[in-house]
Design a protein around this nucleic acid. Sequence first.
DNA 1: AATTGCCCTATTGTCCGACAGTCCGGTTTT
DNA 2: AAAACCGGACTGTCGGACAATAGGGCAATT
Lengths: 271, 271
Amino acid sequence: MVMKKKTIAATRPRRTGAETQAPAESSDAASMFDPVERSPAYTKVSSAIEHKILSRALRDGDVLPAELELAQQFRVHRSTVREALRQLESAGLVARPPGAKRMIVSRPEAAKVASGMRHALVLHEVSFVDVWEAMMVIEPEVAALAALRRTQADLAALTQTSEAFRESPEGDPDSVNIVATFFEQLGAASRNQVLVLAKQSLTQALAPSLARMIDTVPQARTRITDAQRRIIVAVRDKNADEARKWMSKHVRDFKRGYEVAGISPDTPISV
Amino acid sequence: MVMKKKTIAATRPRRTGAETQAPAESSDAASMFDPVERSPAYTKVSSAIEHKILSRALRDGDVLPAELELAQQFRVHRSTVREALRQLESAGLVARPPGAKRMIVSRPEAAKVASGMRHALVLHEVSFVDVWEAMMVIEPEVAALAALRRTQADLAALTQTSEAFRESPEGDPDSVNIVATFFEQLGAASRNQVLVLAKQSLTQALAPSLARMIDTVPQARTRITDAQRRIIVAVRDKNADEARKWMSKHVRDFKRGYEVAGISPDTPISV
DNA sequence: AATTGCCCTATTGTCCGACAGTCCGGTTTT
DNA sequence: AAAACCGGACTGTCGGACAATAGGGCAATT
């Protein structure tokens, strides 16, 4: 167990070196050689594992081998494995159940993906209208689908959420979350995971400024309550057109609210 | 070395045990204590940096301090910093320009976000119809927006791409990429970053199976060519309704293609 | 029998220290 | 001035260490 390490270090072909000077003697505009891809070991390790996960050789819930064992299998140092694991962890492909030692393979949750998208939106200084526009595209259709596919349980959940919103006190900072939940449940009722994923990012991105809006515009609460009620009725009656129509109004109202609140539609969304 | 552990074990409040029996004598279902949050240092470091980036104290293009310096500032070991950096790297918040030493702050590219979403879709075994349904929701509207907002350059790009597709040889494995490019450019023309992000994931997710479909169904190529032509005309004329209509047909055709190719709509999309 | 206390082992989180390979900017040589 | 050279600053990776803890097993206790 002592000499193994030496052997490895000697075997390992100090990765770089012969690559940098190649381009010097290429003919002209069209280069003769493609830049050689030099990727650090931690990337190699992480993509190896990632591949196993995506190809479902490792399935959701499987326990990953211990770091040391991985290190031995890949013939790299444990630190290297750990760096790889951090990549996968932040991608949501592996996770550690609270208070567990080993990592398990997991599929990225909607919230995780959404937050990645939210980061992108924030950093690209996407404006409120852009998000709103996307909502105008997606939400009404989702509502329509939900109306067609909802189960009794979906309906109950929606009703309860709407109830909760109606009863939430005036300045309750939690109100927005309830509104978000309503959207989320509608997504769930649409039985389309893809749309749910896309939607969630939007609501997440919008939430902070929406909160301010609701607190500023007095009519906001009643308008939201009203829209929710209409949507619920449409969903209950499996009336896709109505659902679409009211969701459309509902989302459109958001923009109105922003205008009334004096928030410019071009304000970039923020954290 | 023997009694140290004893002391520790005694001090440590055996977390799990305490929780499980708490509900026994508590008033009812709600447990009395929240689980204490224990997060490793690498997470703390990475969220500290993440926060600085999202709040734009660190802006796109800024060079991060060297690992050693970060380690000193955070008072942790360099390895710990590196683990944190890997997290940020895989989130796309920092990146290293090819052949550069220091890391720079960057905003997650559309492709990055899209691939995160694609992972999620694959692992959740989302079926082809789900993706297709989402496309049916998004793409026509994007086309409509594109028609309204396209510039001359957008139009040129679209035309060129469509041209490229028409000229691509029969079994060319690159054909799908050209189709994808067409969608992407249309997204760009819509001037809505949010929709672009959402779209891209869908096209990415669909691409592999789409490739098979195109190769299997003989009529596919002409139908695609035709649809593209119509869409381009509509976009040229700034005719939103026509653009929407033809994009709708175009996407619907995909499903038809799958049916003809004998691919079940419930096939989960794969890598 | 169920609970509690104690110990051991496998593993993780973190740290130290080291070194080769490479990038970069300045210096010397041609 | 262009080319070759050089030393410092960093990164990538490694070897090695150690404390803390999750998980089990075993024994003492209720």
